[in-house]
Design a protein around this nucleic acid. Structure first.
Lengths: 134, 134
DNA sequence: GTAATTGCAAATAATTTGCTGGGTG
DNA sequence: CACCCAGCAAATTATTTGCAATTAC
């Protein structure tokens, strides 16, 4: 019991991946990281990059942001509103929360860009799953 | 030039898809919509569902939310912070904006659930792309 | 030594696309 | 009757996984 359960061994590959991530302000895709690390360590495989990114995210050392189109969910209400995603059962539900229009204005003021819309969502455990747990 | 450019023809398939979406509070995946519409119209194909969802989103009649894992971007900073995604060039950048911790509390209070974290991002045109346009 | 980790390649999973015939405006 | 759109299947894209060899601790 000396090693914590999710013990992560330190390898050249993992160190390089983390170094690349810490050393860039762009928010790279897995593939970009792969190409970058390959400059140092040409033999690394894409699978290794994916596996390490996953474990780094699980270890809380790296943030993952999902964009793009996969695993989309659709909502018949086209007005902007906010969502809650349960980390336990995967359900996504609308939440009753007023639209924060002023956030967009504040972002436009402090950063020089044009905001069209924003997306806000919360992650946690839904009521049903909370009930099941006790 | 009488018809608007992105003219959308009305078909049985599209009507059914929209009806299914408007008639549910869950936030279905494309596949769920497919199964549901198939109860009415067994001959519909999954490709048609995808194509229609896409055009409905483009027409602004439906919201698309992306969850899950595809097209992830990674961030070496594991602290929660907010992002801006440029709809023109696709770049994702950090924005300088204070963390709104109190949002989580407010959601927990008005809805009975446990919030672990939240995600807030803004979409629009970045400064560089704005400059290019004029 | 042993268990985590690697590289490689094949497998998945969600979504998109080419084609050809059919239905809408 | 032109052209958008359907169905079908094959193609893409991002990501995951099985396996045998390797390496960190």
């Amino acid at each position: 019991m000396s090693k914590p359960k999710g013990f992560i061994r330190r390898t050249k590959q993992r160190e390089l991946i983390l170094e690349v991530l810490k050393g860039t302000t762009c928010h790279p895709t897995a593939d970009w990281v792969y190409e970058k690390v390959r400059e140092e360590l040409p033999s690394i495989s894409l699978g290794t990059v994916y596996r390490n990114l996953r474990s780094l995210v699980e270890a809380g050392e790296v943030l993952e942001l999902t964009f793009g189109s996969s695993f989309s969910r659709f909502d018949g209400n086209p007005e902007n509103h906010y969502h809650f995603a349960c980390e336990e059962c995967g359900q996504v539900s609308d939440i009753d929360f007023p639209l924060q229009e002023e956030l967009e204005k504040r972002v436009e003021e402090s950063n020089r860009l044009k905001v069209h819309t924003h997306r806000l969502e919360f992650y946690g455990i839904c009521q049903e799953c909370l009930n099941k747990k006790e």
